[in-house]
């Protein structure tokens, strides 16, 4: 199984990676996973299927949207969690969560509509042919504008339901990937080995200590 790991690929290429668990690699544990689980997880490291759902225009816009939502802003060509391909596969297979808001179309149509709407915003506000043509900072502004609308309408759809759609698909893909687990210190599948050292502050031999335990909230305590 270990041979399937892409070389030097266990870090997510952005400024966020490898700070807190610099030497932790969940893929070291693959030999201890059951075969069904290992096949599922290691499969995420393999080359992903070619795109089937997104049109080229949607591919460009969705790719940029996912890179901004998940801060995958490494240099061009650097390896990254293939969120675009993972979401495309889900949509091509209509693998939804089994529900939609009454004021939203089915997920596939909702993705097409909202990606086109991002392109419209890019054209109207910056005269760009595509959202993907904008500089990352401009892209972030447009994304933030959707988030800030909360319950108000954005291109005829409730902005908070659009936000929910985008972040749900993006987070589900990204945090399914072992590279993302390395970044957060999560040791992944635990069958058949289980855990033996339970309790606050206790670690198994294969768990790594947080090397840089900075409180991201800054201890604000705002609730």
């Amino acid at each position: 199984m270990r041979g399937q790991r892409p070389p030097a690929g266990h870090r997510v290429p952005s400024g966020e990676s490898g700070r807190r668990y610099p030497h932790f690699d969940v893929l070291d544990q693959v030999p201890d996973w059951d075969p069904a689980t290992a096949a599922t997880v290691v499969g995420r490291l393999a080359r992903q299927p070619d795109l089937r759902f997104f049109t080229p225009a949607e591919e460009a816009t969705a790719g940029a949207l996912f890179d901004r939502l998940l801060a995958q802003d490494g240099p061009p060509g650097a390896p990254k969690v293939p969120v675009l391909q993972m979401v495309d596969a889900r949509l091509a297979e209509a693998q939804t969560d089994g529900w939609r808001y009454a004021d939203m179309p089915e997920d596939g149509d909702a993705w097409r509509t909202t990606l086109a709407a991002l392109d419209e915003d890019a054209a109207e506000q910056h005269g760009a042919a595509s959202f993907a043509d904008l500089a990352p900072e401009r892209q972030k502004e447009l994304i933030r504008a959707v988030q800030d609308l909360h319950g108000k309408a954005w291109h005829g759809l409730p902005a908070q339901h659009v936000w929910s759609l985008w972040t749900r698909y993006a987070c589900t893909a990204f945090y399914a990937h072992p590279w993302a687990w390395n970044e957060i210190g999560f040791p992944g599948p635990a069958y058949p080995r289980g855990y033996q050292r339970l309790g606050v502050g206790l670690r198994e031999p294969f768990e790594a200590a947080d090397a840089d335990p900075v409180d991201p909230t800054g201890g604000r305590g705002t609730g």
């Binding site: 901004r68 801060a71 988030q147 991201p216």
Partner: peptide, 28 residues
């Protein structure tokens, strides 16, 4: 687990670098 936790964190309005930083704090 991480995906469900990411939804919890994203629901606070975190995304981008902010989300990734928050998520790295998972074990705490």
């Amino acid at each position: 687990l991480p995906i469900t936790w990411a939804e919890h964190v994203a629901a606070q309005g975190h995304w981008g670098h902010d989300l990734r930083r928050y998520m790295q704090d998972y074990v705490h």
